[in-house]
Design a protein around this nucleic acid. Structure first.
Length: 443
RNA sequence: GCCCCGGUAGUAUAGUCCGGCUUAGUAUACGGGCCUGUCGAGCCCGUGACCCGGGUUCAAAUCCCGGCCGGGGCGCCA
């Protein structure tokens, strides 16, 4: 990490992690007090910033400084000027003999969480005090890894001709119904927070943008009490035109996931080690399981799913272990979903009850859905009617398809879910700094 | 939306099944002391808690009912 070029008198000259004993003689560091130990002739103050941990060693003969340090407590915020010991005695790494110690902010004690690292607080308590919780290197690591993941995916998309766009979050109508939408007052009219940027991405295909992605939030007003749902989450939503069929979409998606994971592995060795995970860069192509054959596979696994029915959680998990065993893969696609369980805009497999509709499953968890969309005006209208929807409600969308639309498809990958799967997190709330769940709107 | 489980010091837990044997135990944090280049230091002392309301009972952290809060399973989904 490169330290900021600083002006004289600035709070810090170095990130702790940047200090190389022998190369850096003197440094000014700033951070939170991680531990205070009073031992004979010395007081040891551990100081942590986001890059690492330093020990500030104050000997009794330093008089005033020694006294000042006696009042320090956990998570006080301090700045220390000192000489870097060329051969540190401390095992934490960097050791400083201070010239000056400034206490910039006091932490009340006891803290509302155990920050010492031996007691793991309940997630709920941690989230109540999330800023303190995020000081823990482990949680910081999750945020960093997610940033690398998104960066890797963006790099892939940018270098393959995808244009980043921002589609609206406030919408006048839902894409599939309305039950799970958050309602917003829009100058006296009813508006909604989008549940997916889907339909607007399709309109951009009609517009000829050809290949796009939208990185942004979506909202679901589902009161789900599970470790894998958030009411607000981010997705990397991709749409591309001039495809032959949904297979082209899958090819992009697996490249995208692999590029994200690759970036994480390359860039976040330290963080991954801290979290105790070693993700594999997934092999391409990802295995594909298709309806209706999938019913037979499930039956062999001892699970009966009625013909034409959707997969349930148990089926997804069974298939995941099946894929792991037979393909040694954590990810797989499911293709040709029954048309009746999918929304109106999907492309049917001609003359069948199946759709060119694709889910990506990672470690048994649904990470995305997508596939090829129907681009022919008459067909879209027909399908809206088949689904028992009111065509007039979708005019704002459908009418644009009357004037020439390319074959296209896409998908939206849940970023928190992908993070969760790669890092083997038990709860999706770990994968976002301030999770929104049915009960939690603060902080 | 349906179902299951839980709520004890700042934090995390034991005790709850089978009411009394509890002055509610332990770890950590916090305050004090001893020792000591500590690195999860060690030792001694101390402060600190039964979610709220109602009921049963001689007696409730413990049993029952309601509320609030939290966790999970399913559904739905990313």
């Amino acid at each position: 990490m490169r330290s900021l070029r600083i002006r004289k008198g600035m709070l810090r000259s170095h990130y702790i992690g940047d200090i190389k004993p022998g190369l850096v003689r003197e440094a000014r560091i700033a951070g939170w007090v991680d531990r205070v130990k009073d031992v004979g002739r010395f007081r040891f103050i551990w100081v942590r910033d986001r890059s690492g941990l330093a020990q500030v060693t104050i000997s009794r003969d330093q008089g005033e400084l020694y006294e000042k340090a006696s009042g320090l407590g956990l998570h006080d915020f301090v700045a220390v000027d000192g000489v870097v010991l060329e051969k540190p005695v401390a095992k934490v790494g960097v050791e400083l003999k201070p010239k000056e110690l400034r206490i910039l902010s006091r932490a009340e004690s006891p803290l509302p969480l155990d920050v010492g690292g031996y007691i793991e607080s309940n997630l709920s308590t941690r989230l109540d005090w999330r800023p303190i919780d995020l000081r823990h290197p482990r949680n910081l690591a999750i945020m960093r890894i997610q940033a690398a993941l998104v960066k890797g995916m963006q790099e892939y998309l940018d270098s393959h001709g995808f244009i980043q766009v921002f589609t609206p979050c406030l919408i006048g109508a839902g894409s599939e119904g309305g039950a799970e939408l958050f309602e917003v007052d829009y100058f006296g009219r009813r508006a909604y927070l989008r549940q997916d940027p889907q339909l607007h991405r399709q309109l951009l295909m009609v517009a000829g943008l050809d290949k796009i992605y939208d990185l942004g939030p979506s909202w679901r007003a589902e009161p789900s009490h599970t470790p894998r749902h958030l009411c607000e989450y981010r997705s990397c939503a991709v749409e591309l035109s001039f495809i032959e069929d949904e297979v082209d979409v899958m090819r992009v998606e697996e490249e995208l996931v692999a590029a994200g994971v690759k970036r994480v592995v390359e860039e976040c060795g330290r963080e991954l080690k801290l979290l105790g995970v070693e993700p594999d860069i997934p092999k391409k192509p990802f295995p594909v399981l298709k309806f209706p054959k999938i019913y037979e596979v499930l039956e062999d696994l001892g699970k009966k799913v009625a013909y034409g029915e959707d997969l349930d959680r148990e089926a997804e998990k069974l298939l995941a272990s099946y894929v792991k065993e037979n393909y040694d893969h954590d990810f797989f696609f499911v293709d040709y979903f029954p048309y009746r369980v999918k929304p109106f805009y999907v492309m049917k497999v001609d003359g069948t009850d199946w759709a060119r509709s694709v889910d990506l499953i990672g470690r048994g968890l649904e990470l995305s859905s997508g596939g090829q969309r129907e681009h022919r005006y008459e067909r879209i209208v027909e399908q809206i009617e088949e689904k028992g929807l009111n065509l007039e409600d979708f005019r704002w969308f459908v009418d644009h398809f009357r004037y020439g639309a390319p074959p296209h498809g896409g998908f939206a990958i849940g970023i928190e879910r992908l993070t969760m799967v790669i890092l083997n997190l038990e709860n999706i709330r770990e994968a976002t700094p301030f999770p929104r769940t049915p009960e939690r709107l603060l902080p």
